[in-house]
Design a protein around this nucleic acid. Structure first.
Lengths: 111, 111
DNA sequence: CCAAATACCTCGTGGTTAAAGGTATTAGTA
DNA sequence: TACTAATACCTTTAACCACGAGGTATTTGG
């Protein structure tokens, strides 16, 4: 339904997924939980956001996946490719640019 | 054409327009230029973004406008309403929440 | 035995940015 | 004088993507 398009979230799922996978390979369900934790509950992405993001990133060559059975339960583990690391670097830079620009505009000291 | 949906820009035009109008009333074309300046060239919004944003905000009751002739040239000046100030406060808070969440996740110290 | 948690997935909606194009007036310049 | 750039307003089209809702199957815990 997506009542309103939530502010400031464009590109955020991709950025967070890429960032988390720097530390270690992870599976989708795990990523959903880790995003809540890593952002201090500020951002909670549903599975309907994370899974499509993972598929898109893999299709784009930024991630690779392997299936693994753990405790008789099937998981799909994702890890960063070289291309994914570059993508993360680019996205992080873009985030810093936008963030600084907005904060400069918000800063009352220019008035 | 919007080749790709640019990262991190959802809600940003609305936020910046509201913020600029705190200082003084302004007209559309002026806002377009001020946004470039206020963000240190980090963000450049076209007229095709700013004008629709102004209309939407006015329709929502966050802005009010008055026409004014300056040097024989017609301008539409916008200013914040009470409702607009509240909206700005809410959006600013939301921006801080998201920003802090993302920065926490990006911070390598958690690894 | 049954509910909740785990783990994966897809589809539809709709809000939002952005580019391109359109009109009209004024200022500068060659 | 003619032409271009700048000022100032606007709309339409298109693509994207986050989100919610819903769906399947297995395992764990009470």
């Amino acid at each position: 339904m997506a009542r309103t398009n939530p502010p400031f979230m464009t590109g955020v799922p991709e950025l967070l997924v890429l960032r988390l996978l720097v530390d270690s390979e992870m599976y989708g369900y795990e990523i959903v939980r880790k995003i809540r934790l890593a952002t201090g509950e500020a951002i909670a992405l549903g599975e309907g956001v994370v899974y499509p993001a993972l598929h898109a990133l893999e299709k784009a060559g930024a991630l690779q996946s392997r299936r693994k059975k753990v405790d008789g339960r099937e998981r799909v583990y994702y890890s960063l490719t070289n291309s994914g690391q570059q993508r993360l670097a680019a996205l992080t830079g873009e985030w810093d640019r936008i963030r600084q620009g907005i904060n400069a505009a918000l800063d009352p000291s220019h008035a």
